[in-house]
Structure formats: C-alpha cells, structure tokens
Simulated scan of single mutants.
Amino acid sequence: MVLRKAPATALTLAALLALAGCSSIGLPGGGSGEPPQPRPIGASTAPVGGTCDTQGAQWAVGRAGTAKVVEDARVRAGARMARVLRPGQAVTQEFDADRLSLQLDSAGKITAARCG
C-alpha cells in the first residue's frame, strides 16, 4: 500500500507561507503595513526632549556649527529638533517651542542660540 504524502506536504507548506506573510519580524515599519519612516540625516538616538530651554544651548555660542555641536546643543536645551540658520538663508517665521535655532556667521561659527 502506497501513502500519498505529497498533497499533505504541499498544503502544509502553503499554510506556513501564508502565516509567514503575517509575521512582523524583520519587516520595516514593524509589519503594520505602513511604509517605514526614514530616519533624518544625522538623526541622533539621544533623548528627544520637548520644550526648548535656551540656557542649555548657550555654551555652543562661539563654537563651530558642526553636526556634533548642533546635536549636543539640542540635547542640552531639551529641544525636540534643531535648525541651523546661515547668513542670507530664508527661514520660516512660525514659533515652535520644541525647536532650537542656531544662527551661524559666514565663518560657520554659532553666534546665537534661541528657541522657536
């Protein structure tokens, strides 16, 4: 008597493949179906913070506006984000209490640190 295992094996394989499609392990976006959110260039894993406190970033005034200095100033100020303002650059004027703004001079040195 010969047992036919091929259909059962194929059915088991199909079921496993269907279940694997529901898995979120290793999928970008956590398997939620949402596209993965790109990480901003130079994004940090440092605490995100909240409302900006200008006093925490004053140490950066006079220093070169490098990515590390900008990020350290953001973290010390407790800001959620930081922007660098260069001479002659067009900027938005809306106030954002979670944002640190660092003004640079033409040599790339930070001349002012303020929230907003």
Score class of each variant (00 low, 15 high):
43 A>M: 11
69 V>G: 03
104 L>V: 07
71 E>C: 10
54 T>R: 09
56 G>Q: 08
48 V>A: 13
90 A>E: 11
84 V>H: 09
79 A>C: 06
95 F>C: 12
66 T>S: 14
60 A>S: 15
76 R>V: 03
75 V>K: 02
14 A>Y: 06
105 D>M: 11
33 G>T: 02
110 I>G: 01
46 A>I: 14
5 K>M: 10
83 R>F: 00
85 L>G: 06
36 P>Q: 06
2 V>E: 08
11 L>Q: 12
42 G>S: 05
19 L>H: 07
66 T>H: 09
15 A>H: 06
40 P>Q: 06
99 R>K: 11
46 A>T: 15
91 V>C: 09
69 V>M: 07
104 L>I: 09
83 R>H: 00
111 T>G: 10
110 I>Q: 03
93 Q>C: 08
94 E>T: 13
102 L>E: 02
15 A>D: 06
44 S>K: 03
40 P>S: 05
65 G>E: 02
65 G>H: 02
28 P>I: 01
27 L>T: 05
20 A>D: 14
71 E>D: 14
24 S>N: 08
116 G>M: 08
58 Q>P: 03
80 R>A: 12
47 P>S: 15
82 A>Q: 06
28 P>R: 08
52 C>W: 02
10 A>M: 10
30 G>I: 04
48 V>R: 14
3 L>Q: 07
91 V>L: 14
34 E>V: 03
105 D>A: 13
113 A>S: 09
25 I>L: 12
5 K>T: 00
18 A>Y: 10
55 Q>T: 10
53 D>P: 00
39 R>I: 12
96 D>T: 08
24 S>C: 04
4 R>W: 00
33 G>F: 03
25 I>F: 10
39 R>F: 09
13 L>M: 13
60 A>D: 05
82 A>C: 13
18 A>P: 01
98 D>L: 08
25 I>M: 13
85 L>N: 07
18 A>E: 08
50 G>L: 03
96 D>Q: 07
100 L>T: 05
16 L>P: 00
13 L>N: 07
63 R>I: 02
56 G>L: 04
107 A>Q: 15
3 L>N: 11
6 A>P: 00
101 S>Q: 12
